[in-house]
């Protein structure tokens, strides 16, 4: 009984997260705005897909490597808006009062909603983004096709909204190949004037 109820939301979420997407060129040196709170300036060309509050940045394609940006999630909202479509089961939601531990748990629970239950997270440690205090952790899992994936999350809040940057790539070759480019994107983050 329970698996059947999972269909709607899981399919919806998968479509949002992984289905056919239109990508545009994010040119080197040109700033891109993140929900009016931050700007990000790539130092090389990336492909950029935007859908609501989610951006996906990639060079070789999102299955191989990508930076996913959850872009200004408001209090009481899930990371993936489509999860709200399930009337039977409440999605895990962001709350402005959340501690870094709870933000990590929110991410893990959201990933579990798309049926990836085997995420292993590494050390949770303080960091900073554009002068704002932030939290960072690494993670790893084997996907449904048996491919080892690796990633890290950097999350911060500004104006009571959550900004969560999730770099993920195939462990073999791709993670290390584009790690510096991913870090460069994060270092380029600047707070926009209020």
């Amino acid at each position: 009984m329970r698996p059947i109820r999972t269909i709607g939301l899981a399919v919806t979420a998968l479509l949002v997260l992984s289905a056919c997407q239109t990508f545009n060129l994010a040119e080197s040196g040109k700033p891109v705005s993140l929900a009016k709170s931050f700007s990000i300036t790539p130092a090389r060309d990336w492909n950029l897909h935007e859908n609501g509050k989610i951006q996906i940045w990639t060079i070789d394609g999102p299955i191989l490597q990508r930076m996913r940006v959850f872009n200004g999630i408001e209090d009481g909202k899930p990371l993936v808006e489509a999860l709200s479509a399930d009337q039977d089961k409440k999605p895990p939601v962001f709350e402005t009062s959340m501690t870094p531990i709870e933000i990590r748990d929110l991410f893990v629970a959201t990933i579990a909603r798309v049926n990836q239950f085997n995420l292993k997270t590494g050390d949770l440690r303080p960091d900073s983004v554009a002068g704002e205090s932030a939290v960072r952790f690494e993670y790893a899992y084997t996907d449904k096709n048996g491919v080892d994936k690796r990633g890290f999350v950097l999350a911060t809040t500004r104006d009571d909204r959550l900004y969560l940057f999730d770099y993920e790539a195939v462990s073999l070759y791709y993670y290390d190949r584009y790690l510096d480019d991913a870090e460069q994107l994060l270092k380029s983050l600047r707070a926009s004037a209020a």
């Binding site: 698996p3 059947i4 999972t6 899981a10 998968l14 449904k144």
Partner: peptide, 14 residues
């Protein structure tokens, strides 16, 4: 239909 992972499993199972 492009349904990946277990979502597909659930749907097909049904």
């Amino acid at each position: 239909g492009g349904w990946g992972g277990l979502a597909g499993i659930f749907a097909q199972g049904q």
